[in-house]
Amino acid sequence: MSAGPSKNRYHTLVVTVENKFGVLARVAGLFARRGFNIESLAVAPTDDEDLSRITVVVDVESAPLEQVVKQLDKLINVVEIRELHPDHSVERELMIVTVMAEPDRRDELVEHLDRAGGKVLSVGTDAMMLSLVGPPARIDDFENLLRGYGIIEFQRTGRVALASLDGPGD
């Protein structure tokens, strides 16, 4: 456990677990039965094939972060838990979205997308599929902007994060 307490409602924990079947169920089951709320969850293998990395964003209004961490630590398959402080980490999320885009509004939409740093994945007769990678707040903003066009289908990955190399993150 690094990083001191933060006043934010949402805290990002990076949980390194053994790469065995059922481990995600153990983590998710623990959150469910102890009444801890998960805001976002992302899981993938790491460079070490024996380990997976879970990035979980915890809503600490449901339970004190300290309890969440201590209970997680009791899971036998949990190897390490670190809290990533938002000021000292880089957080990213991927969004892909299919949005209404009549031909006369496409240029404007692509301008917004360029400014946000996103990509056009495909174009249909009256819709476009877009992708955007960025800090969660930028994804939130872009999602709000797209509502004005009409979202047809929408998927976010949940956030992943790494500690900053040095100094504050973005």
């Binding site: 169920a25 089951g29 039965r33």
Partner: peptide, 14 residues
């Protein structure tokens, strides 16, 4: 069995 007993054991193995 491991799914059912996950919440009532310190640990379980299949």
């Amino acid at each position: 069995t491991t799914g059912i007993t996950m919440a009532v054991t310190k640990h379980n193995f299949l």
